[in-house]
Design a protein around this nucleic acid. Sequence first.
DNA 1: AACCTTCGCAACCGCAAGGAT
DNA 2: CATCCTTGCGGTTGCGAAGGT
Length: 283
Amino acid sequence: MGRTTWLDNEGLRKGEWSAEEDRMLVAYIDEYGLGDWRTLPKRAGLQRCGKSCRLRWLNYLRPGIKRGKFTPQEEEDIIKFHSLLGNRWAAIAKQMPNRTDNDIKNHWHSCLKKRLVRSGIDPMTHEPIVKASSSSTMSSPTLTPSSSTTSSSFSSTSSARLLNRLATGISSRKHGLDRIKNVILSEPRPAVEEDKLMISSKEDEEEVNGCFMEIDNNLISTTSLDELLFESTTTTTAGFVAAFDDCSLAEPYDLYQSDLYHETDDQLDLFLEIHSLGQEDLS
DNA sequence: AACCTTCGCAACCGCAAGGAT
DNA sequence: CATCCTTGCGGTTGCGAAGGT
């Protein structure tokens, strides 16, 4: 299986790797370690570009890679992490150390995505596919648009889901957290009127991702979002505060303003922790 | 048996982020 | 500070295998 091998216009081999090429790459890295991928092929005696060598090493030759069929547990994990992280395959792969991002991505596209669709689950939102109905009421699968909504009218499931979406936004965008702090979670927290939160430019819109677009579109109110964040961290995660006792934080809310979020990996780990606690709580 | 479709997966491409100069 | 270079990521493609008609 694989692509046939050919030479590009610079005389570099493309396509399927031969056993001999694999052997040469492994032998070189074993002896000299990983280094400059650009110059590695020449030093290793390979007629490949550095990018190709890197890919071959990371996705195939690197020690510790688990190949072959995914177990049901692994599939479950992929679906779970995808619901949290979206198409961030590298981030998902970090949670599953023996699998490569390429492998996970391939399995998702060729198998898991279709399986979810067959089960009536939207593979992007991980929510039940809502068929167009004759009802005239505007509805969102998880978020109820209402300026008079109180936090108690939101299910803890939707709260957790929203929190997870925010987590994805925060961890994937450099200034996402700052924006949340400044625009939505500013202290003291005045009741922010919906029309005060304006997304002024296309750039802003892209920056703050779909979550904020929903705000802009009035699908959820900012005050509801604020309440949701409280609710998410209190009612859906009984063990949440206990889990972070070491942080000496009085309220879960404070976590949003703490230094814990300054590093992407920390954000991710923290939110995964929140999510798993939330899942236990919901089950 | 021949043809067609779907599956599985390796590898390529383009782009963006971040570091080096 | 600007530009260049390298690395890493995600989307997509290509192709043999497997299965169906």
